[in-house]
Simulated scan of single mutants.
Amino acid sequence: MNDRRIKWMILLIPTLTIGLWEYIRHAFLLPYMTMDLGNLLAPFIVLAVTLTLVRGLFVRLESSQRALQRQRSRGAALEERERLAAELHDGIAQSLFLLAVKLDRLDAAADEPARRELAGQLRETVRDVHEDVRQAIARLRLPPEASQHDWAEPLRECLGETAALTEAEAEFRWDIPEELLGIKEKIELHACLREALVNVRKHARAGNVYVLGECSPDGGFRCAVMDDGIGFAGNPLEAPGRFGLRMVRERALRMGWTFAAERREGMTVIELIKKGANIHRQPMEGAAR
């Protein structure tokens, strides 16, 4: 028996009980029972039925609610584990892979200037790994309820950290309702936008950074990380050391989103679009200006 049926039975049983009692009293017991006695017995009969049938229904309803809460808790725990795994994969695992590649290059370097340059790059990568680990630990120390009140709040915090580290001005505009996004979309979108902000932190030298999100009338959305930094030299997806953007593109393609990394009117734009019938670009670009 589902919860809805249990609730209806809890509502209807007392009503049906008093109706049935009145019918029996008037049809069969009226010659043997006074009106005052019948009225006096009515609430006790309803109470007896409530203590037997309705109380049992309440117990079943409470049990069902507890089971539902346990299921939601397990789902939230699995979602958090998947989000953490994605962050570790995108941040720490990626940096460690890059560290291994640079170590191989250091072993193969023949001259001393090349070795010094690679050694400097290794130190920078180690610092990036340390920063990723520090942020992951800090997020694990936050109470789980913090992310439940506002799913976009971790994105705002990540933007704030990026702005603080780069001494840039930050702007966060997010108009996408949480219910518009599925669990998988939230995880992937958070990972992609976080990686785009890490890219700004490492390469952009920006004075202004924006995280923008808007929904389209057909149920899609458009998100972007924008900055006024130095921009790309050539194709950023082919540049050495830009593993993060390539991973963002792969994630977007797996989700069926459109990915773009380009310069627009003096701004570097990393953009994700869930395709719809009519995607509006102008409001977001105008907001950045």
Rank of each mutant, 00 (worst) to 15 (best):
R4W: 03
R5K: 13
P14M: 07
L20A: 14
E22K: 04
F28L: 10
T34S: 08
L37M: 11
A42T: 15
F44D: 04
I45K: 00
V46P: 08
V46Q: 05
V46K: 08
V46T: 14
T50P: 04
T52V: 11
T52D: 09
V54C: 07
R60S: 11
Q69S: 08
R72I: 01
G75F: 00
G75A: 13
G75P: 00
L78R: 12
L78S: 03
E82G: 03
E82D: 14
A85M: 09
E87L: 14
L88D: 05
L88Q: 14
H89R: 15
I92H: 05
A93M: 11
Q94D: 09
F97V: 01
L99F: 14
R105Q: 15
L106Q: 11
L118Q: 05
A119H: 11
A119C: 10
Q135H: 15
R139V: 14
E153W: 15
E157M: 03
L159Q: 03
P177I: 05
P177Y: 02
L180V: 05
L189S: 01
H190Y: 07
L193R: 02
R194S: 10
E195A: 11
E195N: 04
V198W: 00
G207E: 13
N208E: 10
V209P: 07
Y210A: 07
E214V: 12
P217T: 09
G220E: 06
G220P: 09
A224L: 05
D227C: 08
G234M: 03
G234S: 06
N235V: 10
E238I: 00
P240A: 07
G241Y: 09
G244F: 12
M247Y: 05
L253F: 05
R254I: 12
M255R: 12
F259A: 04
R264N: 02
G266P: 01
E271H: 09
K274H: 09
K274W: 03
K275Y: 01
M284P: 00
